Amino acid sequence: MSEQQFFAQPETSEWIELAPGNRRRVLIHTPELMQVEFGFDKGGIGAPHSHPHIQVSYVAEGTFEVTIDGKTETVGTGGSFIVPTGLVHSVVALEAGRLVDVFTPMRQDFV
């Protein structure tokens, strides 16, 4: 049995490039919960997708056009959005920025 991780420092997580202008790094997780940081260059796209996880996102920096289940809104620094299970969602970075996403349960496909 592995020891529970209580703390994480950003320099211990490596960025993975997902597409031009879009990268992620897993910050910390348990089987029930995961925190992930996404970095976007201006114009970077988080392509439309869905997953069985509940996702809540915090805009740590920048401004994003966020589409959830066909509804689009602009969300800037300090704003948040939630994506219920199974809904198609996407983002476009209107300027360079970062999202901090929390998933429940954790995303096995990210580790």
Rank of each mutant, 00 (worst) to 15 (best):
V91K: 04
N22Q: 12
R24M: 06
D41S: 15
E14T: 05
G46W: 01
M106Y: 11
G79L: 09
V36I: 04
T85R: 13
V100R: 08
D69E: 08
V26S: 06
I28R: 14
G46Y: 00
R24H: 06
V66R: 00
Y58N: 11
E14Y: 00
D101P: 01
L99V: 07
V102G: 12
W15K: 00
D41E: 15
I28L: 15
G39M: 06
S90Y: 03
D41R: 11
V59Y: 01
G86P: 10
A60D: 07
S80K: 00
P20F: 05
A60G: 10
R98S: 08
V83G: 09
E14W: 00
R98T: 08
E3Q: 11
T12D: 12
E17C: 04
G21K: 10
G86A: 13
E65F: 07
G79P: 02
L27Q: 09
G76S: 15
L87H: 07
V75C: 13
E11T: 13
D69A: 13
H51C: 05
P10V: 08
E3C: 08
Q9V: 14
E14C: 04
D101T: 02
R25T: 00
H53M: 09
S80C: 10
H53P: 09
L18G: 04
W15G: 03
G62P: 06
R23A: 10
H29G: 09
E73I: 09
F7A: 15
S13A: 15
E14D: 10
H29W: 01
F64I: 04
T30Q: 11
D41W: 00
T104Q: 12
L99S: 03
E3H: 13
V92M: 04
T74C: 09
G39P: 06
R24I: 01
G97I: 09
N22F: 12
R23Q: 08
K42Y: 04
F38P: 00
P52R: 12
S13P: 08
